[in-house]
Design a protein around this nucleic acid. Structure first.
Lengths: 236, 236
DNA sequence: GTCTATACATAGATAGAC
DNA sequence: GTCTATCTATGTATAGAC
């Protein structure tokens, strides 16, 4: 799958999930006309992400948001009951899309080697298209209330689990030479995250999305097929 | 060098730099007795890092800081002229210590292979001991004013440059098989950062500082000594 | 040097006009 | 559905007592 093909899939999922979120929260939203709601929600979300990613969600005032989204304070508060609820919705949206698309993509191919490649590629593509969401979710996670925070951590571990499962299967089949599955999965995550956390750096250096995905895959594959010099304790 | 030996070095540097910071800002600080100043500065810094890392610097009120440091608002403001100045000092301190110790350690050994090992190990050790500072510097970078922000970015690139230089030398000497130096350096940085950004994860899994350093070194070394399958364009 | 009390600005949220 | 005007809470910062 190329990057452009991938873009279309994400675009469709995005609308699906926007509508889903609206339906889940229909009771809380005072405005009733569907096209109004969806349109304004997107304006508010986009503005909120832009401001928050520049100076932090806490530092974004509702007046900032009002100005950037070109909706009055009153109008904004007819979609959310509080600033915290806006934070909650933003978090949810990113997480749902990311998890759904990732799982979908991996299920399309067979075998750990293929699945590993696709999982990495899909994640880089996804975080490129939805960079503001990914960045926001990562950075603002600790500002969440206790219960929300737990969900964010679960989500982090869930993505990692996808890689752990692929690596475990590959190790069992003897395809991957692997001494520490959890650390390896953890490393893959760290590399994937660097892509959306340091976008300024990669953009400046003109490294594109395919360069990066290929590089990660190369590093991981060379590690998984290395000559093993000595045995190390295997974590479970 | 073991982790415990390393701890002592950092401890000394920390005091050195605390004193240095005080001397640089002597004019701004109203309190004059040295032992008072150093002692209270440390109390304020520690409290500020603890609160900020839990809920963000923006969200930390000066009343929070006053309570945690057990100094009154008035007392705190006799050390800083504003909350922004406190942010500035915290940032500076972390950066200075990190850069100094890293450069010192690398200069102790000869040869790219050795230097690479030591640079990775020293960084993991350092960020373990000073985890709150590293976390804070990373997460709060974007809350800085324009000029300060530039310095933070320079510092990020400076650390990366250390690895770029080692890798470049190793490639020239034919010790490292490397197709993309900048991406490789970037990857090393990402792995090093994960250690202090996701401390909760590694602690829970009982992965200690030496496990992690060894793992990173293993991954990078296996990548640098891999069988090269095909040539790829080399960035400069 | 440090405290208490307080000034002043800005934040989130809402009521009621349109 | 959206806007303007405004309430109340909370934030940063400081003046003056001790």
């Amino acid at each position: 799958m190329t990057y452009d093909e991938f873009k279309k899939i994400v675009s469709i999922s995005k609308k699906e999930i926007s509508r889903q979120i609206w339906e889940t929260n229909r009771s809380a939203i005072k405005v009733k006309k569907e096209e109004k709601v969806i349109g304004n929600l997107i304006r508010i979300f986009d503005a909120a992400l832009e401001i928050s990613n520049a100076k932090g969600f806490q530092a974004m005032s509702m007046r900032d948001l009002s100005a950037k989204s070109r909706l009055s304070m009153g109008a904004i508060y007819s979609y959310f009951s509080s600033k915290d609820e806006l934070l909650h919705l933003l978090q949810m949206q990113g997480r749902q899309i990311a998890n759904k698309i990732l799982v979908d993509q991996i299920s399309l191919v067979k075998g750990p080697a293929q699945k590993l490649r696709i999982a990495i590629q899909a994640h880089v593509y996804l975080s490129e298209i939805m960079q503001p969401w990914f960045y926001f979710t990562y950075i603002e996670a600790r500002n969440l209330a206790k219960d929300e925070r737990r969900k964010a951590i679960e989500s982090e571990l869930y993505t990692e689990k996808i890689f752990i499962d692929i690596l475990t299967k590959g190790a069992k089949l003897g395809i991957f030479k692997i001494s520490d599955i959890i650390l390896t999965a953890s490393l893959i995550k760290a590399m994937l995250q660097d892509w959306y956390l340091k976008r300024w750096k990669y953009q400046k250096r003109k490294i594109n999305v395919d360069d990066y995905a290929e590089f990660i895959i190369g590093v991981i594959e060379s590690y998984l097929s290395r000559k093993v010099k000595r045995s190390r304790a295997c974590r479970t």
